[in-house]
């Protein structure tokens, strides 16, 4: 059974700009823009969820979507 498609979601208001998610993203999907996190290469995202696991501020996560 195939899982539902997932996409990256940000809550920039909770981001404190520590850069941990970007540093540990294996595909270079994320980067800091100013003091906040931004998705810079969404097409490279492999939905591994490491950013969600590592973000100390719960500002980034994978969310299931109906149509990706």
């Amino acid at each position: 059974m195939a899982g539902k498609a997932k996409k990256l979601v940000l809550n920039v208001g909770w981001c404190k700009g520590c850069g941990v998610c970007a540093a540990f993203c294996p595909k270079g999907v994320l980067d800091l823009k100013g003091d906040k996190i931004a998705i810079v290469a969404e097409d490279k995202c492999i939905r591994c969820g490491l950013c969600e696991i590592r973000c100390p501020d719960y500002a980034i996560w994978l969310e299931e979507v109906e149509n990706a």
Binding site: K16, C18, G19, V20, I53, C55, P56, D57, Y58
Partner: peptide, 9 residues
């Protein structure tokens, strides 16, 4: 907690 604090994780 401060930016990058391990406690959040």
């Amino acid at each position: 907690w401060c930016p990058g604090c391990g406690h959040g994780v």
